[in-house]
């Protein structure tokens, strides 16, 4: 039995008479790359926010990295990484300052940050640009830096919310190669995307429709079940069932 990093059981979030997430149930193992798909308004963000300890469920249970999402939200925040489409880097701080800031927020010692930073800058070929403002970096570099910072404190799991929007096709692929390497180090990756070819890179994929998980399997398994040649076709068949339109 592999170690479970996410254990989610009938997780529900209701806003007045609107059920944004409806009895969502699944588990994700250590080191797995898990793709979380759904049309706009299907409830992806609602589920992600609950798993990051930012929003209380109405009912159901979930453990993230072994911590309970009702009463251990602070522990959860320490043991997860998060990267949104907007990257959360400070544009008017330098590369080094951004790394130091986030390392400090996650409670790493100065010595530890310094040592890890040297290595990271080398890996990203950013050593020469370490004292430059993030604002001046090309988009693709910012994206790689943001991801590296999100896993700098070696979290159990990293949440990526549409991380590859708007970058060129080579950078997009290099980014997924970083994701592969990360999962090989044992960090679980939980990612949303609108690029259906990226869904193919995941070990397993869940598709949300109207607050519920409508389909969940490996990309190959989904293609067989829904008789589609690509994940794009699968997504179209599954997500078209949606009745509601929201954001």
């Amino acid at each position: 039995m592999p170690e479970l990093v996410l254990e989610i059981d009938k997780l529900t979030k209701q806003f007045e008479d609107f059920v944004a997430a409806d009895a969502v149930t699944f588990t994700v193992s250590k080191g797995e790359i898990f793709g979380f798909l759904g049309a706009n308004g299907a409830g992806k963000t609602t589920v992600m926010r609950m798993l990051c300890g930012l929003s209380m469920p109405t009912s159901g249970s979930a453990k993230v990295a072994g911590f309970d999402i009702y009463n251990q939200t602070e522990e959860i925040k320490k043991h997860i990484g998060y990267m949104s489409q907007k990257f959360c880097l400070y544009e008017d701080l330098t590369v080094k300052e951004n790394i130091t800031l986030y390392g400090g927020i996650y409670g790493l010692s100065s010595a530890h940050i310094k040592e890890k930073m040297e290595k990271l800058l080398k890996e990203l070929s950013l050593t020469e640009d370490a004292n430059k403002l993030v604002r001046g970096l090309p988009l693709g570099w910012k994206q790689k830096l943001a991801f590296s910072i999100a896993i700098f404190h070696e979290p159990k799991i990293v949440f990526l919310d549409e991380p590859t929007g708007g970058v060129d096709p080579i950078t997009r692929r290099q980014f997924w190669e970083m994701i592969y390497e990360t999962s090989r180090k044992g960090i679980t990756v939980f990612a949303t995307t609108h690029y259906m070819d990226e869904a193919e890179y995941c070990n397993r994929v869940a598709i949300m429709v109207d607050g519920k998980i409508e389909a969940m399997d490996s990309p190959d398994g989904l293609k067989k079940t829904y008789n589609g040649k690509t994940m794009d076709e699968v997504f179209y068949v599954v997500a078209r069932k949606a009745k509601r339109q929201a954001d």
Binding site: G38, A39, N40, Q85, E162, G165, G166, H194, M196, D232, F235, Y236, A239, R240, A242
Partner: peptide, 8 residues
């Protein structure tokens, strides 16, 4: 941009 595959 940012629109899901079906709406696209």
């Amino acid at each position: 941009t940012g629109v899901d595959a079906i709406s696209r």
